[in-house]
């Protein structure tokens, strides 16, 4: 089975501008890779728990004690654009989040 991928939808989610050539090529390559990756379905049975961490740990926490912050200058040193001590960005026209 070769999955069909809505490349435009995925690119929008990933916030990537793709050229027409990339769109075509990635569509083709992703389908191939996914076909190969599809093999994971052959062996993973319902009674196998998923692993998200190679070495299980729990409750790794830090004390609520202040550590060093960056100086204001260092915080903004890498900013592509700054104004009034803040990071300046082009206008925001929509809110993408649900809350």
């Amino acid at each position: 089975m070769t999955p069909t991928i809505d490349v435009d939808h995925v690119a929008r989610l990933a916030r990537l501008v793709l050229t027409d050539e990339e769109r075509e090529r990635f569509g083709r390559q992703l389908a191939l890779i996914l076909e190969h990756a599809d093999r994971v379905r052959e062996v993973a049975a319902a009674d196998v728990p998923p692993t998200s961490h190679p070495i299980p740990r729990a409750n790794v926490l830090r004390a609520d004690e202040p550590g060093p912050s960056l100086s204001h200058e260092d915080a903004l040193a890498n900013a592509p654009e700054a104004e009034a001590g803040m990071f300046r960005v082009p206008p925001i026209t929509e809110r993408e989040e649900e809350g």
Binding site: R15, A79, P80, F87, V89, P90, P91, I92, T93, E96
Partner: peptide, 18 residues
């Protein structure tokens, strides 16, 4: 937004990101 390269001339932040 905070560091690294940024594409110039985008009309809004979504376009700038992408």
């Amino acid at each position: 937004v905070r560091y690294g390269a940024r594409a110039a001339g985008a009309a809004d932040v979504v376009e700038m990101n992408a």
